[in-house]
């Protein structure tokens, strides 16, 4: 790797202060599973002068239940989330999503904050500098999206306009499903954004000098059943081709609440209100689930090579909903 200065910080406030003083030349490193690869391959034209290690900050890896729900520190590791009884008990989709990421070693290193802030997996964006030079594109601030007229088999079906990179985070899909909020710390103090507002078409809501301070998930509705599913070519290792999460509440066999979220189909994880509304008030027979999946995907705008993701997304939605009906392990 090209050289950088390495700074350990011991409080989040200190981290914010260093970020501010660096004038955009510092980058945060947490688990390192994404950024080290990004730096080694030199995929970005800018290279940080400072790597700011926040792992030295004590007690930021908490997973805490409280009366409002669950609080998760930005340094909570994915392996910990997948194993945590508190997460598995009421936030099963999050445990499943965390467990679906990478390999055991990756999950021992990667943090939830890092998972939300990771760079996209778009293979044009990630093209390695060592083989003829990095590729520039709209997301890097120069040129247009190369996927539009290229091989876009993994790219976005929804909400993309100028950059068609899809959000790679599985954890984000579960967090969206569960209505999570992200607490952000910055120079001006703290602010909170809902997860659906965290991801932007070309990145995320963090302004320069800001950092994720924590994540809060409200207690799911009583009786909610939830399921996260991920479609990949291999079971471990892979990023999602499509991921889906569903949550339903039934009352006497009638659906009173339904949430559907998809990952890897848009610049951020995405909810589908029309499909959710369609389910409410209905008995969830197979044909109803399939209909809802169809409604969800109605607005999809496939590119030349990613149309197949529509069928997969529909299948995952139906299967995630079915699993909610069948799977008792995440009931409470």
């Amino acid at each position: 790797m090209r050289s950088f200065q390495h700074i350990n910080v011991f409080t989040l406030e200190e981290a914010v202060s260093v970020l501010k003083d660096s004038g955009g030349k510092a980058q945060v490193i947490a688990g390192g599973t994404d950024i080290i690869g990004v730096l080694k391959e030199q995929i970005l034209p800018d290279y940080p002068e400072i790597l700011l290690n926040i792992k030295a900050i004590p007690d930021l890896d908490y997973i805490k239940k409280d009366h409002e729900g669950l609080r998760i520190g930005p340094l909570a590791k994915l392996a910990g989330l997948a194993k945590s009884p508190a997460v598995r008990e009421k936030y099963g989709a999050l445990a499943q999503a965390a467990r679906s990421v990478g390999s055991p070693q990756i999950r021992n290193m990667a943090t939830i904050g890092g998972n939300l802030c990771q760079e996209t997996r778009c293979w044009y964006y990630r093209y390695p500098h060592s083989i003829g030079g990095r590729l520039l594109c709209l997301r890097k601030g120069s040129g247009s999206c190369l996927a539009v007229n290229g091989d876009n088999r993994y790219h976005a079906l929804f909400d993309a306009r100028r950059c068609f990179a899809a959000c790679p985070s599985d954890v984000a899909v579960a967090l969206l499903l569960l209505g999570a909020e992200i607490n952000i710390l910055g120079i001006g103090g703290k602010r909170t954004v809902y997860l659906q507002d965290f991801f932007h078409p070309l990145g995320n809501a963090l302004e320069p000098g800001e950092i994720i301070g924590g994540i809060h998930i409200p207690t799911p509705p009583v009786g909610a059943k939830q399921q996260f599913l991920k479609f990949t070519l291999r079971k471990p290792i892979d990023f999602a081709v499509v991921s889906a999460a569903a949550l339903i509440v039934l009352d006497g066999g009638i659906c009173t609440e339904a949430r559907i979220a998809l990952g890897a189909v848009a610049p951020g994880p995405r909810r589908f209100p029309e499909a959710e509304n369609f389910l409410k008030g209905k008995r969830l027979e197979t044909n109803v689930l399939e209909k809802a999946a169809g409604i969800a995907l109605e607005g999809a705008k496939p590119l030349s090579k990613n149309g197949y993701k529509i069928e997969i997304a529909k299948t995952l939605i139906s299967r995630a909903l079915s699993a909610c009906l069948e799977n008792e392990s995440f009931n409470h």
Partner: peptide
């Protein structure tokens, strides 16, 4: 150019 010169996008059996 080849787009998948890495061990995530190039698929291998686990």
């Amino acid at each position: 150019r080849f787009l998948n010169p890495n061990m995530l996008d190039y698929k291998w059996r686990t």
